[in-house]
Amino acid sequence: MLLNIIAFIVGICLGLVYSYSKYKAPYVEKRIDKLALASAIIGGLIFNLSPPIGSLFLGFPLGMRPGYGRMEFLIGVIIAVLIYLSLKI
């Protein structure tokens, strides 16, 4: 459990550093970041197998600057849940 929390915090910090280094504009741009989307999908799929690694990947888009990463997180988790449900059938 402690390892999950530590990995999640590290993912949040990495997302924050990434978003501040990539996006210079103080406003939210209407586009989806491919790295954050991939991180959310991978984190959603891996979370069932290895929660610490999944927490690291899920923390990345959640830790981005305010306004960034929220759509990527939602799209990634929805795609991951759909893939997970389709594999369970």
Rank of each mutant, 00 (worst) to 15 (best):
F8P: 00
K24R: 12
G43N: 09
E72S: 04
L3Y: 11
V28I: 12
F60P: 00
I53K: 04
I89V: 15
R65D: 09
I5L: 05
L16I: 05
A25E: 11
I53E: 06
L82N: 13
Y20S: 07
V28N: 12
K22F: 08
L82H: 06
I42R: 05
L74G: 09
I83Q: 08
I12T: 06
I83A: 08
Y18R: 00
A25D: 12
I6A: 09
Y20F: 08
I41M: 04
L2S: 14
G15V: 01
P26Y: 04
F73S: 04
P66S: 15
L87P: 13
I53W: 01
F57Y: 08
E29N: 10
G76V: 03
I42K: 05
K24P: 06
S21T: 12
P26E: 11
G69R: 01
G54S: 06
I9A: 08
G11V: 02
K88Y: 15
E29K: 12
L35E: 11
A7V: 05
G59C: 01
N48W: 15
G67K: 08
G15F: 00
L37F: 10
A7C: 09
L45V: 07
A25R: 15
I79E: 05
L58I: 14
K24G: 10
P51V: 07
L37P: 05
L82M: 08
A7R: 01
R31G: 10
L56T: 01
S21N: 13
A40Y: 02
